[in-house]
Simulated assay, not measured.
Amino acid sequence: MPDPILLLGISGPSSSGKTTLSRLLRDAFPPNQLTILHLDDFYLTDAEIPVKNGIQDWDCIDSLNLPQLQQTLAYIKEHGRSPPDFVSKEDQNSVGEHGVGPDAVENAKVRIEKVVKEVSWKRRICVVDGFLLFSDDMKAVRELFDVRMFLRTSYATAKRRREARSGYVTLEGFWEDPPGYVDTIVWPNYVHDHKFLFVDEDVEKELDESVCRRIGLEGMPRDAEENMERCLEWAVGVLEKVIRGEGPKS
């Protein structure tokens, strides 16, 4: 009987580096040991996306096919792989420059290789990245994860990065944010869904350590904001502890 798959959730605001980190971690692990699933693959059809103030709202829970997401995660936990009929569209979307040099990537690979050999780690890892994995409205999904990493970024950075994107492949076409979308939809939704994680419910302040402990959340350190090399270093450190049996649900 193979070891059960480890389900790793990586969440945070739009443009905080979730997909970039997921792909860097995939590169750091031995071939085929880490796979990625994207929350964006579980949007409803374009016609079913809810409308808010005359604009489609792609950044809310009602835009997602939650039953399909839960069924897929349950299948992965049971079978150790994605359902055979599952096809990802997310890798068709571009990811900006991450600024991580080859030395940092190689260092991550060396660290992972060392700890994997130390404990003869055989478990495969499935990373799920998405903007809304850890909110209280997603509690049933949140509790499926063995490890939960939360990335953060400021409003100014999220706005700059999001508005620099060309758009997104959808189930039925292509979506481009209309002017002002970050201010009217993206950031207000993020604050609403994640303020409970922060001191004084202020998403620009520190994460509330007591809340993070209660829900088993690993929060990205402040010095990793806008520094993907540092973010990768932190994430590898979290996984080193998990692999050694020192982390949550290892």
Score class of each variant (00 low, 15 high):
E118W: 05
R81W: 00
V95D: 00
P84E: 14
D103C: 02
L73W: 07
V115E: 03
P84A: 05
E118M: 07
I112A: 04
G101V: 14
V116K: 03
T72R: 07
W121K: 01
D91F: 12
G80N: 01
V100M: 03
F86G: 08
V119S: 03
A74L: 12
Q92W: 08
N93K: 01
G80A: 02
H98F: 06
H79R: 10
V105H: 01
V105E: 15
F86Y: 15
T72E: 10
I125A: 06
H98Y: 07
N107F: 11
I76G: 09
N107S: 13
D103Y: 06
V95H: 00
R81K: 13
T72Q: 09
P84T: 13
K77Q: 14
K89V: 14
K109W: 03
K114T: 14
H98T: 02
S82T: 12
K89H: 15
H98L: 02
S88D: 11
V105S: 07
D103M: 02
E118R: 06
D103W: 04
E118T: 07
G99V: 01
S82Y: 04
V116P: 04
P84S: 11
R123S: 12
R111M: 05
I76C: 10
N93A: 01
G96D: 03
S88F: 08
R123G: 10
Y75W: 12
G80P: 06
D85W: 14
E97T: 06
E113K: 09
H79Y: 15
Q71K: 15
E113C: 08
E97I: 07
R124L: 06
E78S: 10
K117T: 07
V115T: 13
I76Y: 05
K122C: 01
E90H: 06
D85H: 12
I125H: 06
S88T: 15
V115L: 06
Q71A: 15
H98K: 02
K122G: 10
K109P: 00
Q71W: 08
D85I: 12
V87W: 11
Q92P: 14
V105N: 01
V110R: 09
V116D: 03
V95G: 00
A74R: 15
